[in-house]
Design a binder for these strands. Structure first.
Lengths: 126, 126
DNA sequence: CCGAATCCACAACGATACTG
DNA sequence: CAGTATCGTTGTGGATTCGG
């Protein structure tokens, strides 16, 4: 088990440093499609086509691309059922579920501050 | 005060729905530069040039662009000191600090699972 | 049904130069 | 120093096709 992140300046610096592995991982995962896929998967296991339908606006290509990336990093598990037609299912792994917990936080934040943000936008767009 | 996000299927659906305001905000904020800026600001207030130096790899253009976006959404406050040369400082607002708390969670997650992820990558890249 | 590959339009981005 | 504008390049991402 690795060291805890406590928010010390040195640790924060690690994430800002472009060449650091932590930073590379953060940058790869911190994009809207990946986070939306994680949030959508939740506790369920979904097929490719179900994901494509439920993550609104995502294209076939973006979905496969992000699923490969998440699989490679061990956040989702991909199980192929050798039937015809093929049936491929995706589930969050333990690391994936751990990340989902923090993504839930971002979703909660969005709901919580919807009003603030709308108001701020109106003020900004004179 | 808006309703709490409790993770019910209806609320999750709100974030997947492309036309929803919550979804639009989430998509705008959930990109690596914005999150790295928020994380870097932390509790401090920094000048434009300090931010550019500390968020490694970010270009002048990306920094201004994301700062404008964050300001418009009320996540950062921009204060201009009418000196010469000009001095512009950025600080997180209360909503910004609230989001930072969850970004801290993502950073902690990255540190926590660095090992898992490295191993998973090696396995994937046969 | 799932996924890889190709093509290509268009947005993102970096570099540069110019204002207050 | 901070910010905007312009331009040229890169690369992202959608549409489509083919293959397992």
């Amino acid at each position: 088990m690795t060291k805890q992140f406590t928010g010390t300046p040195e640790e924060v610096a690690d994430l800002r440093r472009a060449d650091s592995l932590a930073r590379e991982i953060f940058s790869e995962v911190a994009n809207k499609w990946a986070l939306l896929i994680i949030e959508t998967l939740g506790e369920r296991t979904l097929r490719f086509s179900e994901l494509r339908d439920q993550v609104e606006g995502i294209s076939h290509k973006m979905l496969t691309q992000n699923l490969r990336m998440l699989e490679r990093n061990g956040l989702v598990e991909r199980t192929v059922h050798p039937t015809v037609p093929p049936r491929v299912e995706y589930t969050l792994t333990e690391p994936g579920r751990a990340l989902r917990a923090t993504v839930d936080g971002m979703c909660a934040w969005t709901q919580r501050y919807l009003g603030h943000i709308e108001a701020s936008r109106r003020g900004f767009d004179d």
